[in-house]
């Protein structure tokens, strides 16, 4: 076989490194940023972009795992509740008499998140129930757990241990916020893993046809379990970002509605909700786009809730374009 033919086969097996959706998203973000820069001179400054990147990080980070979950044909609507549990637990540990160190806080949060993810994963993979139902249920359970840990009211006087992930000067290296940098690295690793390893391709196989994947030798249940545990782990890390972003107070609304924000970012990024197709790079761009809109709406002095309207429109346009492309592919 000639090298050319081999290369051809390789190209056919591997999906293209960037999807059309991602190119379009980059274009939209560039246009949006340009428009915002023209209308509000303060937009394209470090003081405006850095908080934007910090705010993007938690949604994009959880979005990486959510992308994998959705690629397997599942969904996790309990991440909002899980963020609440992890962040209140970590915040309480930070406030405690000794006050744990940065490393311990992160590990604690990740361990708590992983445990919650394990609960979801076991129920979904071995209980053989539709993921949306189970995670609706566990969302309530997690919220209960979180509120119980809160006790009454808010957690006050959180020390600045997590400033490494925060908005302040401690949270940046070369002007780039650490939270965003970490998210970027994890997204890159996940992109490589999903594209270039057998284990990563298995997630796509499960989402395409779980039965066929099983017959082809994929351990479907273990893979599915892994996807939800991974979600929990990244929720744990994202919770540290959430605490670091806030003031020294954590209130009971933490995590509320985050599950839909994450799913919106994933969907805008071009991942198919039916499973079998998707990209973590798109999710990162989707999260960045949503946050840019939110930031832009505020800076233009519009009512901040108006940004939700744009999120809705973006979802329709992004998925609608994808539907039209799929239709064109089929008719070709």
């Amino acid at each position: 076989m000639t090298a050319v033919a081999e290369a051809k086969i390789k190209r056919r097996v591997l999906p293209s490194p960037v999807t059309g959706q991602e190119i379009v998203l980059v274009g939209v973000i560039v246009v949006l940023w340009a428009a915002l820069a023209v209308s509000t001179p303060a937009f394209l400054t470090a003081g405006s972009i850095q908080p934007l990147l910090v705010a993007t990080a938690p949604v994009a980070l959880v979005g990486v795992a959510m992308t994998i979950v959705i690629i397997t044909g599942g969904i996790d609507v309990s991440v909002g509740g899980a963020i609440m549990v992890c962040s209140v637990l970590t915040a309480k540990a930070l406030v405690g008499t000794d006050g744990v160190s940065l490393g311990v806080a992160v590990l604690l949060s990740i361990a708590a998140g992983g445990l919650l993810g394990l609960v979801n994963g076991v129920l979904i993979a071995y209980g053989r129930v539709h993921a949306i139902i189970i995670t609706f249920g566990t969302a309530n359970l997690f919220m209960f757990l979180g509120l119980r840990i809160f006790g009454s009211g808010t957690v006050n006087g959180i020390p600045a241990t997590l400033a490494f992930f925060g908005r302040g000067p401690d949270g940046r290296t070369l002007g780039i916020p650490h939270a965003f940098l970490i998210t970027l690295v994890i997204t890159a690793v996940a992109w490589w893993y999903l594209r270039h390893t057998a284990g990563g391709r298995h997630f796509f196989a499960i989402g395409g046809d779980a039965q066929a994947a099983r017959l082809a030798g994929v351990r479907v249940q273990r893979r599915v379990l892994l996807a939800y545990v991974l979600t929990g782990v990244l929720v744990g890390l994202a919770s540290c970002f959430v605490i670091a972003q806030g003031t020294s107070t954590l209130d009971q609304s933490v995590g509320s509605g985050k599950e839909l924000a994450v799913i919106a970012a994933v969907v805008i990024g071009g991942t198919s909700i039916m499973g079998g197709r998707g990209s973590v790079l798109g999710t990162l761009l989707g999260a960045l786009l949503v946050q840019s809109v939110a930031s832009g709406v505020t800076q233009l002095g519009w009512r901040s809730q108006l940004s939700d309207l744009f999120v809705g429109i973006f979802i329709i346009v992004a998925v609608g374009a994808d539907l039209l492309r799929a239709r064109a592919r089929r008719s070709r």
């Binding site: 969904i75 949306i132 839909l260 799913i263 919106a264 969907v267 909700i273 809730q305 108006l306 940004s307 939700d308 309207l309 999120v311 809705g312 429109i313 979802i315 329709i316 998925v319």
Partner: peptide, 14 residues
């Protein structure tokens, strides 16, 4: 799920 997620955001905002 997608369509009603989008309209959820839009209606809520409006």
């Amino acid at each position: 799920l997608i369509a009603t997620l989008a309209t959820f955001y839009a209606y809520k905002s409006l």
